[in-house]
């Protein structure tokens, strides 16, 4: 019964901060970097691309087709093919994850903008909003819930997908899985899974919180209804 809970805590204690690159602390930091960069980057890239697709409708069909194809590509072979270009670096994991994120977020941005009711848009025009101000003050805020729903999917799946990078030596906490497999030992697997799911839950909660702060009118309306 040496695999019971006490030995997990003991194992964490011994491996938390060994000073080596594969200490849990360093793996956690790597994991955060490799998941946060694609999450932020895919949002930053998807916003203008989604805006363009919403404005010039002919652009949306080919873009969403391309994004569907990208989304269907399995991550491991894509990492492997990128190695010859970007080497065994974090970039090799970050680039595909950014594209997967965009594949989810571009349609979300387009759907969000399309969810703006016509009478709202016309009211903004009638009130003298310039196109840019109308976009920033009226259309984007209304699109926020749909875009953030997409971002929640992207955040949670990016955080879990980073671990596949362990198969090319760049997987953050995924490194715990390869270590546990090579030297059969359960605690690293449990710690890895728990930490990754916990990170995903925290990221998800933060986005939900951001949504509340960015769309105060949703709760105000609910308050009025009750």
């Amino acid at each position: 019964m040496s695999d019971g809970p006490p030995s997990i805590w003991e194992w964490i204690g011994r491996n938390w901060d060994t000073g080596r690159a594969d200490s849990i602390r360093n793996l956690l930091t790597d994991h955060l970097t490799m998941s946060l960069v694609p999450i932020v980057l895919s949002l930053v890239l998807a916003l203008p691309l989604g805006l363009a697709c919403a404005r010039w409708r002919w652009l949306y069909q080919p873009t969403s087709g391309l994004m569907n194809v990208i989304y269907a590509l399995p991550s491991l072979p894509v990492f492997m093919l990128l190695i010859s270009v970007t080497g065994l670096s974090q970039t090799t994991v970050i680039i595909p994850l950014t594209f997967y994120g965009m594949a989810v977020l571009i349609p979300a941005v387009v759907d969000g903008l399309r969810s703006v009711p016509d009478h709202v848009r016309q009211s903004a025009v009638a009130m003298g909003f310039t196109p840019l101000r109308r976009l920033l003050r009226v259309e984007l805020p209304i699109a926020v819930p749909v875009v953030l729903a997409g971002l929640r999917v992207v955040a949670v799946s990016s955080i879990s997908l980073v671990s596949v990078g362990a198969l090319i030596g760049q997987g953050g906490l995924g490194g715990l899985f390869t270590r546990a497999y090579q030297n059969p030992f359960m605690p690293p697997v449990i710690v890895g899974i728990v930490l990754i799911v916990a990170l995903a839950l925290v990221a998800d909660a933060l986005i939900v919180l951001a949504q509340r702060l960015l769309t105060p009118w949703v709760r105000a309306r609910k308050g009025m209804a009750s």
Binding site: V156, S157, S160, S163, L173, T178, I196, L201
Partner: peptide
């Protein structure tokens, strides 16, 4: 979505 496939395997 949150469960890492490699860890589960």
């Amino acid at each position: 979505r949150a469960l890492p496939t490699l860890g589960l395997l």
